[in-house]
Amino acid sequence: MTAIHIDIASKVYPPKHRKQPAHQAIAKFGLSVADNEFVCLVGPSGCGKTTLLNIIAGLDDQYQGKIVLGQQQHSPRIGYVFQNPRLLPWHSVRENIELAAPQPLATDLLDSLLETMQLTAVQNAYPEHLSLGMSRRVAIIRAFAIDPDILLMDEPFVSLDAPTARQVRDLLLRLWIQRPHTVLFVTHDLREAIALADRLVFLSAPPMRVISGIKVPIARNQRNDEQAIESFRQQLLNNHPAIKQLL
């Protein structure tokens, strides 16, 4: 079981210059995520979402508080999909994925991942020959290939045009349904969040804190229904007008 329990009293960045004040990015932040739950974090740009993911991933330990990942005696595997795909340009698609795995991947498993994400035809291509959407799909497979207990995703579809983002989002959901993990997905796109999440968590401007958490009532088999997504989005905005200021 790999639930996430977050209790951050304070995360402060020191001033870059002597005359500038320190920047408090996070204060009194508490959040729990259930095992295999897909949670989307929605908040304004610069509010501290990436900082939070870096703390959970263990890339930033300069904070006051506590992060508990799963059971104390178990060290969970964490997959991280960054905004930039970060593919090694001198390796092919297949090699980029294989290099991330802690042990050799079974051929049939990798073939299945490539097929699910519609990348079989370009598995031997190099990153310079891929579109941005393809590169992001490779980054998603690379994170899933380590069989993570927890998957952190930092606006992985940013800069994609709407049709491409929708395609990659649908492929991600298909892969997640096949291989469920606990997911924290950062976005500022409310429609995207509704299409993906079991629960939406709305975050404030710095110092970041949780404003509200709202379950998404739309069934998984209706997440491609744009009318249903838009209807729920309008309902959220009407019932919680403060959300508009976070987008």
Score class of each variant (00 low, 15 high):
residue 93 V to S: 06
residue 95 E to L: 02
residue 95 E to Y: 15
residue 96 N to P: 08
residue 99 L to G: 03
residue 101 A to F: 07
residue 104 P to F: 10
residue 107 T to N: 13
residue 108 D to C: 01
residue 111 D to C: 10
residue 113 L to P: 00
residue 116 T to Y: 04
residue 116 T to D: 13
residue 117 M to T: 08
residue 118 Q to W: 08
residue 118 Q to V: 13
residue 119 L to V: 05
residue 121 A to S: 15
residue 122 V to M: 08
residue 122 V to L: 10
residue 126 Y to C: 03
residue 129 H to W: 12
residue 130 L to G: 01
residue 133 G to A: 09
residue 133 G to V: 03
residue 134 M to N: 10
residue 135 S to F: 04
residue 135 S to N: 08
residue 136 R to D: 07
residue 137 R to P: 04
residue 145 A to M: 10
residue 146 I to N: 05
residue 147 D to N: 11
residue 147 D to Q: 08
residue 148 P to E: 13
residue 150 I to N: 00
residue 151 L to I: 09
residue 153 M to Q: 11
residue 153 M to S: 13
residue 154 D to L: 00
residue 157 F to N: 02
residue 159 S to Q: 11
residue 159 S to L: 05
residue 160 L to V: 01
residue 160 L to F: 09
residue 162 A to P: 01
residue 163 P to A: 00
residue 163 P to Q: 07
residue 167 Q to F: 06
residue 168 V to L: 03
residue 169 R to V: 07
residue 171 L to F: 04
residue 172 L to Q: 11
residue 173 L to A: 07
residue 175 L to V: 10
residue 178 Q to P: 03
residue 179 R to H: 14
residue 179 R to G: 11
residue 181 H to R: 15
residue 181 H to P: 06
residue 182 T to H: 06
residue 183 V to M: 04
residue 184 L to S: 00
residue 184 L to R: 00
residue 185 F to A: 06
residue 186 V to N: 09
residue 188 H to R: 04
residue 192 E to Q: 12
residue 193 A to I: 01
residue 195 A to Q: 14
residue 196 L to I: 12
residue 197 A to L: 13
residue 197 A to F: 09
residue 199 R to V: 05
residue 199 R to Q: 09
residue 200 L to D: 05
residue 202 F to Q: 03
residue 203 L to G: 03
residue 203 L to V: 10
residue 205 A to T: 05
residue 206 P to W: 06
residue 209 R to Q: 15
residue 210 V to S: 12
residue 211 I to Y: 10
residue 212 S to V: 02
residue 213 G to C: 08
residue 214 I to A: 05
residue 216 V to E: 12
residue 216 V to D: 11
residue 217 P to I: 05
residue 219 A to S: 15
residue 219 A to D: 14
residue 220 R to P: 04
residue 222 Q to S: 06
residue 224 N to Q: 15
residue 226 E to H: 14
residue 226 E to F: 15
residue 226 E to I: 11
